[in-house]
Simulated scan of single mutants.
Amino acid sequence: MERAATRRHYLMVRPTYFDVVYSINPWMNPEKPTFTGLAVAQWEGLRDLFTGLGHRVDLLDPRPGLPDMVFAANGATVVDGRVLVARFRDSQRTAEAEAYLEWFPAHGYTDVRQARWTNEGEGDYLVAGSRILAGTGFRTTLRAHRESQEYFGVPVVGLTLVDPRFYHLDTALTVLAEDTVMYYPKAFSAESRELLEELYPDAVHATAADAAEFGLNAVSDGRHVVLPQAATGLIGRLREHGFEPIGVDMSELLKAGGSVKCCTLELHGTGLAGRSH
């Protein structure tokens, strides 16, 4: 199958203040040393890769005291130019929302508000064609799903996560194209697995080993799939499905429970998507 890339618009935050000084997910260990310079180098490589593929990358300035702010995907969801800013579960991250509430209006977005219910942006909301796939179970709440469906005016399909290692939907599932996803089945409840099988019978399935390497925390433009280079099994399966995988090293950022997708907030509906190249 011939896969076509479309130009995307991303928002990213440089990991200037990256560190692991608390633990709010199973991957974080404050006793394990971190190297901010290495995190910055890995992040810069990802940003340069996106721009090299023809995508637009805007930057939101990092703020001191917010070491997880590099994970821009958690900050908001943007659909058709409407912005729903996150309401974080954990107190260590709540101050990040203010930066997004300021950035979007300053850059021409007129429909911007913060979620009422706990909602961690594209960590749990993934746009898939005419629907939004929405995770729940650890962070984003079911009430937030209803709120998002009303705000964006598109169907929101709830999926329940059951493995605490995969606490956001974007750690367990990647939207590859409008009608294609890849995911780790055991990260989901039985009911959600049945729903995914019904919606995406030709999905790419990840093994436990590739999921543990954060191979599903990936970004696709419809053809190129940027993912952690250690997810070697997924890289092979993506090629079999006609995609062009590009492996990158995000090992330093993984110490905080994030990788490619966590660092990348897609701004849907800004006039850039939909152009083949």
Rank of each mutant, 00 (worst) to 15 (best):
A256M: 02
N29M: 11
L265I: 02
P67W: 05
A99V: 00
A106P: 10
A208K: 10
L59S: 15
T136Q: 14
T77R: 09
D61W: 10
V85W: 12
V78E: 07
N74S: 07
F152P: 12
P105R: 11
E122R: 03
P26A: 11
E102T: 12
L126F: 08
L199C: 08
S192N: 09
Y183A: 08
T180M: 11
V83R: 11
I235Q: 12
L254C: 09
A203D: 08
R93A: 06
C263P: 00
M182H: 02
D210V: 15
G129P: 07
L176H: 03
V85C: 05
T6Q: 08
T264P: 01
H268W: 03
A76K: 03
G269P: 00
G52F: 07
D210I: 14
V181A: 11
F50E: 06
R87D: 05
V57C: 07
A73W: 04
L126W: 10
A76H: 04
D111C: 05
A208R: 10
Y184A: 09
G158S: 15
D61K: 15
T174M: 04
T174G: 02
G222I: 04
T232G: 00
P64A: 05
P26G: 12
T207S: 15
P155R: 03
E120T: 00
F166W: 13
G158P: 14
L84V: 01
D80R: 08
P15G: 12
V57A: 05
G123E: 12
A4C: 13
R143A: 13
L254R: 13
V112D: 03
V40M: 15
M69E: 14
R165G: 02
E96V: 02
D111T: 14
H9R: 11
F18D: 13
S220E: 09
A39Q: 04
S251G: 15
F138H: 07
T160R: 15
A99F: 10
S259K: 03
R143G: 01
E122C: 01
P67S: 03
F35Q: 06
M182D: 11
E120V: 01
E213V: 11
F138T: 07
T51W: 03
P185F: 09
A72W: 11
D163E: 15
P62A: 15
H9E: 08
P67L: 02
S259T: 12
Q92K: 13
G222Q: 06
D124F: 13
K32C: 10
E178A: 15
V156I: 09
G121P: 05
Y151T: 02
A206C: 03
G233K: 00
A230E: 11
Y151I: 01
E31S: 13
R87M: 07
V20S: 03
K261R: 14
A106H: 04
P15Y: 05
I235N: 01
P64Y: 01
V162S: 13
H168E: 07
V248C: 06
R131Y: 01
F18C: 09
L176K: 05
L53A: 04
V21Q: 11
H9C: 05
E191R: 14
P15T: 09
A144T: 15
